[in-house]
Write a protein that binds this DNA or RNA. Sequence first.
DNA 1: CAATAAAAAGAGTTAAAACTCTTTAATTAT
DNA 2: ATAATTAAAGAGTTTTAACTCTTTTTATTG
Lengths: 117, 117
Amino acid sequence: MFSKTFGYALRATVYVAVHGRIDKKVGLQDISEGLGIPHYFLGKIMQDLVRHGILDSTKGPSGGFFPNEHTADIPLTNILKITDGNLVFDQCALGIKRCNAEHPCPLHDDFAACQMK
Amino acid sequence: MFSKTFGYALRATVYVAVHGRIDKKVGLQDISEGLGIPHYFLGKIMQDLVRHGILDSTKGPSGGFFPNEHTADIPLTNILKITDGNLVFDQCALGIKRCNAEHPCPLHDDFAACQMK
DNA sequence: CAATAAAAAGAGTTAAAACTCTTTAATTAT
DNA sequence: ATAATTAAAGAGTTTTAACTCTTTTTATTG
Ligand code: FES
Ligand code: FES
Protein backbone atom coordinates (compact mmCIF):
# COMPACT_ATOMS: atom_id res chain seq x y z
CA MET A 1 0.00 0.00 0.00
CA PHE A 2 2.49 2.53 1.24
CA SER A 3 6.02 1.88 2.34
CA LYS A 4 6.62 0.78 5.89
CA THR A 5 8.84 3.80 6.19
CA PHE A 6 5.85 6.04 5.63
CA GLY A 7 3.89 4.29 8.37
CA TYR A 8 6.82 4.62 10.75
CA ALA A 9 7.32 8.29 9.88
CA LEU A 10 3.70 9.18 10.34
CA ARG A 11 3.27 7.34 13.60
CA ALA A 12 6.48 8.80 14.99
CA THR A 13 5.38 12.29 14.04
CA VAL A 14 2.08 11.85 15.80
CA TYR A 15 3.87 10.35 18.79
CA VAL A 16 6.17 13.34 19.10
CA ALA A 17 3.32 15.78 18.54
CA VAL A 18 1.34 14.16 21.33
CA HIS A 19 4.09 13.46 23.87
CA GLY A 20 6.54 16.27 23.21
CA ARG A 21 6.84 20.01 23.70
CA ILE A 22 9.76 22.37 23.26
CA ASP A 23 10.50 21.97 26.95
CA LYS A 24 9.79 18.24 26.96
CA LYS A 25 11.72 16.52 24.24
CA VAL A 26 11.09 12.95 23.20
CA GLY A 27 14.07 10.62 22.81
CA LEU A 28 14.56 8.22 19.92
CA GLN A 29 14.64 5.30 22.31
CA ASP A 30 11.32 6.38 23.78
CA ILE A 31 9.65 6.59 20.39
CA SER A 32 11.02 3.32 19.06
CA GLU A 33 9.98 1.44 22.18
CA GLY A 34 6.63 3.14 22.41
CA LEU A 35 5.73 2.31 18.83
CA GLY A 36 7.67 -0.92 18.30
CA ILE A 37 9.75 0.43 15.45
CA PRO A 38 13.34 -0.77 14.91
CA HIS A 39 15.57 1.65 16.79
CA TYR A 40 18.31 2.39 14.28
CA PHE A 41 16.00 2.45 11.33
CA LEU A 42 13.75 4.96 13.00
CA GLY A 43 16.82 7.10 13.62
CA LYS A 44 17.32 7.47 9.87
CA ILE A 45 13.70 8.32 9.32
CA MET A 46 13.72 10.97 12.05
CA GLN A 47 16.74 12.62 10.46
CA ASP A 48 14.71 13.01 7.30
CA LEU A 49 11.71 14.43 9.09
CA VAL A 50 13.84 17.00 10.89
CA ARG A 51 15.69 17.87 7.69
CA HIS A 52 12.36 18.61 6.06
CA GLY A 53 11.12 20.66 8.99
CA ILE A 54 8.34 18.31 10.06
CA LEU A 55 9.83 18.16 13.54
CA ASP A 56 12.69 19.80 15.38
CA SER A 57 15.42 18.23 17.46
CA THR A 58 18.37 18.97 19.68
CA LYS A 59 21.40 16.88 20.50
CA GLY A 60 23.03 16.38 23.86
CA PRO A 61 21.67 15.22 27.20
CA SER A 62 17.92 15.58 27.56
CA GLY A 63 17.87 16.30 23.89
CA GLY A 64 15.41 14.70 21.52
CA PHE A 65 12.59 15.48 19.17
CA PHE A 66 9.79 17.98 19.60
CA PRO A 67 7.08 19.55 17.49
CA ASN A 68 7.55 22.97 15.94
CA GLU A 69 4.98 25.59 14.94
CA HIS A 70 4.25 23.76 11.66
CA THR A 71 4.03 20.20 12.91
CA ALA A 72 0.33 20.22 13.72
CA ASP A 73 -0.63 21.64 10.32
CA ILE A 74 1.51 19.49 8.06
CA PRO A 75 -0.58 17.62 5.48
CA LEU A 76 -0.13 13.87 5.53
CA THR A 77 0.86 14.05 1.93
CA ASN A 78 4.00 16.00 2.80
CA ILE A 79 5.27 13.13 4.88
CA LEU A 80 4.30 10.70 2.14
CA LYS A 81 6.32 12.71 -0.35
CA ILE A 82 9.34 12.63 1.95
CA THR A 83 9.26 8.90 2.50
CA ASP A 84 7.88 7.54 -0.76
CA GLY A 85 8.64 10.27 -3.27
CA ASN A 86 5.85 11.70 -5.34
CA LEU A 87 5.46 8.80 -7.70
CA VAL A 88 2.42 7.87 -5.67
CA PHE A 89 0.82 11.06 -6.90
CA ASP A 90 1.92 11.20 -10.51
CA GLN A 91 1.11 7.62 -11.23
CA CYS A 92 -2.15 5.81 -11.52
CA ALA A 93 -2.85 2.96 -9.15
CA LEU A 94 -1.54 0.49 -11.70
CA GLY A 95 1.50 2.40 -12.85
CA ILE A 96 0.21 2.86 -16.37
CA LYS A 97 2.12 5.65 -18.04
CA ARG A 98 -0.48 7.85 -19.63
CA CYS A 99 -3.70 7.62 -17.74
CA ASN A 100 -6.17 10.43 -17.29
CA ALA A 101 -9.83 11.14 -17.67
CA GLU A 102 -9.51 10.93 -21.46
CA HIS A 103 -7.55 7.67 -21.56
CA PRO A 104 -8.68 5.91 -18.42
CA CYS A 105 -7.56 2.44 -17.49
CA PRO A 106 -10.11 -0.16 -16.36
CA LEU A 107 -9.70 0.95 -12.78
CA HIS A 108 -9.54 4.66 -13.27
CA ASP A 109 -12.91 5.46 -11.83
CA ASP A 110 -12.68 2.98 -8.99
CA PHE A 111 -9.45 4.50 -7.82
CA ALA A 112 -10.10 8.15 -8.51
CA ALA A 113 -11.98 8.31 -5.23
CA CYS A 114 -8.88 7.17 -3.35
CA GLN A 115 -6.35 9.45 -4.96
CA MET A 116 -5.11 12.22 -2.79
CA LYS A 117 -4.59 15.17 -5.05
CA MET B 1 0.41 1.48 -3.59
CA PHE B 2 0.10 -2.01 -4.93
CA SER B 3 2.86 -4.20 -6.25
CA LYS B 4 3.85 -3.83 -9.87
CA THR B 5 3.04 -7.50 -10.22
CA PHE B 6 -0.59 -6.76 -9.39
CA GLY B 7 -0.76 -4.08 -12.06
CA TYR B 8 0.76 -6.43 -14.61
CA ALA B 9 -1.59 -9.26 -13.65
CA LEU B 10 -4.67 -7.15 -13.85
CA ARG B 11 -3.81 -5.54 -17.15
CA ALA B 12 -2.86 -8.87 -18.67
CA THR B 13 -6.13 -10.40 -17.54
CA VAL B 14 -8.11 -7.59 -19.12
CA TYR B 15 -6.01 -7.88 -22.27
CA VAL B 16 -6.72 -11.58 -22.61
CA ALA B 17 -10.39 -11.10 -21.79
CA VAL B 18 -10.68 -8.48 -24.50
CA HIS B 19 -8.52 -10.02 -27.22
CA GLY B 20 -8.92 -13.73 -26.62
CA ARG B 21 -11.52 -16.45 -26.98
CA ILE B 22 -11.31 -20.21 -26.64
CA ASP B 23 -10.77 -20.40 -30.38
CA LYS B 24 -8.48 -17.38 -30.48
CA LYS B 25 -5.72 -17.73 -27.96
CA VAL B 26 -3.41 -14.91 -27.00
CA GLY B 27 0.31 -15.59 -26.85
CA LEU B 28 2.62 -14.41 -24.10
CA GLN B 29 4.68 -12.45 -26.61
CA ASP B 30 1.59 -10.68 -27.82
CA ILE B 31 0.55 -9.64 -24.32
CA SER B 32 3.97 -8.52 -23.22
CA GLU B 33 4.47 -6.41 -26.32
CA GLY B 34 0.95 -5.06 -26.29
CA LEU B 35 1.22 -3.91 -22.69
CA GLY B 36 4.93 -3.20 -22.39
CA ILE B 37 5.51 -5.73 -19.63
CA PRO B 38 8.82 -7.61 -19.35
CA HIS B 39 8.37 -10.83 -21.28
CA TYR B 40 9.83 -13.42 -18.90
CA PHE B 41 8.44 -11.79 -15.82
CA LEU B 42 4.96 -11.76 -17.25
CA GLY B 43 5.36 -15.46 -17.98
CA LYS B 44 5.67 -16.16 -14.29
CA ILE B 45 2.67 -14.04 -13.48
CA MET B 46 0.54 -15.75 -16.12
CA GLN B 47 1.43 -19.13 -14.64
CA ASP B 48 -0.01 -17.97 -11.35
CA LEU B 49 -3.18 -16.65 -12.92
CA VAL B 50 -3.78 -19.91 -14.74
CA ARG B 51 -2.99 -21.93 -11.63
CA HIS B 52 -5.66 -19.97 -9.78
CA GLY B 53 -8.20 -20.36 -12.57
CA ILE B 54 -8.37 -16.70 -13.54
CA LEU B 55 -7.49 -17.65 -17.10
CA ASP B 56 -6.93 -20.84 -19.07
CA SER B 57 -4.06 -21.77 -21.35
CA THR B 58 -2.79 -24.41 -23.73
CA LYS B 59 0.72 -25.22 -24.84
CA GLY B 60 1.96 -26.01 -28.29
CA PRO B 61 1.66 -24.20 -31.61
CA SER B 62 -1.14 -21.66 -31.71
CA GLY B 63 -1.43 -22.17 -27.98
CA GLY B 64 -1.72 -19.32 -25.53
CA PHE B 65 -4.04 -17.80 -22.98
CA PHE B 66 -7.77 -17.38 -23.17
CA PRO B 67 -10.62 -16.45 -20.84
CA ASN B 68 -12.75 -19.12 -19.20
CA GLU B 69 -16.31 -18.96 -17.94
CA HIS B 70 -15.24 -17.27 -14.69
CA THR B 71 -12.84 -14.70 -16.05
CA ALA B 72 -15.34 -11.94 -16.63
CA ASP B 73 -16.83 -12.25 -13.15
CA ILE B 74 -13.66 -12.44 -11.09
CA PRO B 75 -13.48 -9.70 -8.47
CA LEU B 76 -10.39 -7.53 -8.66
CA THR B 77 -9.63 -8.46 -5.12
CA ASN B 78 -9.07 -12.07 -6.12
CA ILE B 79 -6.21 -11.06 -8.36
CA LEU B 80 -4.87 -8.79 -5.65
CA LYS B 81 -4.87 -11.69 -3.23
CA ILE B 82 -2.95 -13.84 -5.69
CA THR B 83 -0.25 -11.29 -6.36
CA ASP B 84 0.06 -9.43 -3.07
CA GLY B 85 -1.32 -11.88 -0.52
CA ASN B 86 -4.11 -10.81 1.75
CA LEU B 87 -2.05 -8.65 4.04
CA VAL B 88 -3.50 -5.70 2.18
CA PHE B 89 -6.85 -6.68 3.59
CA ASP B 90 -6.02 -7.71 7.13
CA GLN B 91 -3.83 -4.76 7.79
CA CYS B 92 -4.56 -1.12 8.23
CA ALA B 93 -2.98 1.33 5.84
CA LEU B 94 -0.10 1.89 8.24
CA GLY B 95 0.50 -1.69 9.23
CA ILE B 96 -0.44 -1.11 12.85
CA LYS B 97 -1.17 -4.44 14.49
CA ARG B 98 -4.45 -4.02 16.29
CA CYS B 99 -6.51 -1.39 14.60
CA ASN B 100 -10.26 -1.41 14.37
CA ALA B 101 -13.20 0.84 15.01
CA GLU B 102 -12.61 0.59 18.76
CA HIS B 103 -8.88 1.27 18.65
CA PRO B 104 -8.50 3.40 15.55
CA CYS B 105 -5.20 4.89 14.48
CA PRO B 106 -5.00 8.55 13.46
CA LEU B 107 -5.80 7.64 9.88
CA HIS B 108 -8.45 5.05 10.44
CA ASP B 109 -11.37 7.14 9.25
CA ASP B 110 -9.51 8.69 6.34
CA PHE B 111 -8.61 5.31 4.98
CA ALA B 112 -11.74 3.37 5.79
CA ALA B 113 -13.30 4.75 2.63
CA CYS B 114 -10.54 3.20 0.54
CA GLN B 115 -10.51 -0.23 2.07
CA MET B 116 -11.91 -2.93 -0.11
CA LYS B 117 -13.68 -5.32 2.19
C1' DC C 1 36.15 22.34 31.14
C1' DA C 2 35.55 17.47 31.43
C1' DA C 3 32.38 13.77 31.12
C1' DT C 4 28.26 12.33 29.39
C1' DA C 5 24.16 11.98 26.64
C1' DA C 6 21.84 12.55 22.80
C1' DA C 7 20.99 13.06 17.54
C1' DA C 8 23.47 13.31 12.80
C1' DA C 9 26.12 11.29 9.41
C1' DG C 10 28.37 7.64 7.03
C1' DA C 11 28.79 3.14 5.60
C1' DG C 12 27.37 -0.79 5.59
C1' DT C 13 24.18 -5.70 5.62
C1' DT C 14 19.89 -8.39 4.95
C1' DA C 15 15.57 -9.43 2.97
C1' DA C 16 12.10 -8.87 -0.43
C1' DA C 17 10.50 -7.59 -4.97
C1' DA C 18 11.40 -7.38 -9.69
C1' DC C 19 13.25 -9.41 -13.40
C1' DT C 20 16.05 -13.06 -16.50
C1' DC C 21 17.54 -17.29 -18.46
C1' DT C 22 17.44 -22.27 -19.36
C1' DT C 23 15.27 -26.58 -19.43
C1' DT C 24 11.15 -29.42 -19.65
C1' DA C 25 6.48 -30.75 -20.90
C1' DA C 26 2.53 -30.47 -23.82
C1' DT C 27 0.27 -29.65 -28.20
C1' DT C 28 -0.12 -29.06 -33.07
C1' DA C 29 1.01 -29.64 -37.83
C1' DT C 30 3.62 -31.89 -41.23
C1' DA D 1 6.56 -40.13 -35.76
C1' DT D 2 9.10 -35.99 -36.06
C1' DA D 3 9.76 -31.20 -35.89
C1' DA D 4 8.14 -26.96 -34.48
C1' DT D 5 5.85 -24.06 -31.16
C1' DT D 6 4.27 -22.57 -27.06
C1' DA D 7 3.45 -22.45 -21.92
C1' DA D 8 5.24 -24.48 -17.35
C1' DA D 9 8.73 -25.18 -14.21
C1' DG D 10 13.11 -24.49 -12.11
C1' DA D 11 16.87 -21.86 -10.88
C1' DG D 12 18.86 -18.19 -10.97
C1' DT D 13 20.41 -12.54 -10.93
C1' DT D 14 19.56 -7.65 -10.09
C1' DT D 15 17.49 -3.94 -7.83
C1' DT D 16 15.16 -1.75 -4.19
C1' DA D 17 13.42 -1.44 0.48
C1' DA D 18 14.29 -2.51 5.15
C1' DC D 19 17.29 -2.62 8.61
C1' DT D 20 22.04 -2.37 11.43
C1' DC D 21 26.34 -0.73 13.22
C1' DT D 22 30.05 2.66 13.98
C1' DT D 23 31.81 7.19 14.16
C1' DT D 24 31.14 12.09 14.55
C1' DT D 25 28.99 16.28 16.07
C1' DT D 26 26.42 19.06 19.34
C1' DA D 27 24.58 20.14 23.54
C1' DT D 28 24.10 19.62 28.75
C1' DT D 29 25.47 19.13 33.33
C1' DG D 30 28.42 18.44 37.24
S1 FES E 1 -4.52 4.18 -15.94
FE1 FES E 1 -4.61 3.55 -13.87
S2 FES E 1 -6.08 4.73 -12.76
FE2 FES E 1 -6.20 5.17 -14.89
S1 FES F 1 -4.65 1.53 12.76
FE1 FES F 1 -4.31 2.12 10.68
S2 FES F 1 -6.25 2.48 9.72
FE2 FES F 1 -6.55 2.18 11.84
